[in-house]
Simulated scan of single mutants.
Amino acid sequence: MRDLPDPEKAKPCVLVIDDDEAVGWAIASRLGKDFRVVALCDPAQAAQISREEKPGVILCDIDMPGMQGDEVAFALSQDPRTARIPLVYLTALVGPDEPPDLEGVFGDHPTVSKGASTEELRDIIATALGLPDDV
């Protein structure tokens, strides 16, 4: 008998890069129904894990020890296998009710607050993935 495809693998993958493991767990619990969330605490592994997991979008913290978010974005941009993956900065530098006023500060990547609502996270991920608004 043939094995059926894994339904988890059919979901779009979201890679969360944050030095705080709790952030990855929180996002996975909020988005796991619709997305396959892979959390990573070591930003130095971002390129390797991106090549392995082939995420549709990456949520990346800006302020991390050892490797900042803009350094992660640069490293990903240098590898043809990861350069086209949309990256969204995930930050505590803005509150959930504040509009992210970081346009151009860290490149041309969109920014979302770590305290954003589940709906806002879903919307920014859906936009980055090019999904219709009703996803």
Rank of each mutant, 00 (worst) to 15 (best):
V57S: 06
R122P: 03
L102A: 05
G95S: 15
V37T: 12
L129I: 12
V72E: 00
A44E: 13
H109G: 04
R2H: 08
V38D: 12
E119D: 14
F35E: 01
P5Y: 01
V72A: 04
V14R: 11
L15I: 09
R122L: 05
E103C: 02
G130Y: 06
E21H: 06
E21R: 08
A10F: 00
V112N: 02
Y89D: 02
R81T: 13
V88D: 07
E120H: 04
I124R: 00
L90M: 08
V38C: 14
R36F: 11
I62S: 04
P132R: 13
V23H: 00
E71S: 03
S77W: 02
G115Y: 03
E8P: 03
G115W: 00
D61K: 13
E120W: 00
L15D: 05
T111K: 07
D133Q: 12
G95R: 15
V88E: 07
A28C: 06
D133P: 13
F74E: 15
P132K: 15
A47S: 12
P43C: 01
A92V: 07
E53G: 01
K9E: 15
D97A: 10
P96I: 01
D123V: 13
D97E: 12
V57T: 15
A44F: 10
D42E: 11
T118I: 08
L93C: 05
A46C: 06
P99I: 08
F106H: 14
P55N: 11
V38S: 12
A26Y: 00
D34L: 14
D63T: 10
K11M: 09
D63L: 13
Q78L: 14
D20Q: 13
S29Y: 05
G104T: 07
P99Y: 02
I49S: 01
D97Q: 10
E120T: 11
P100Q: 08
P132Q: 14
V94E: 08
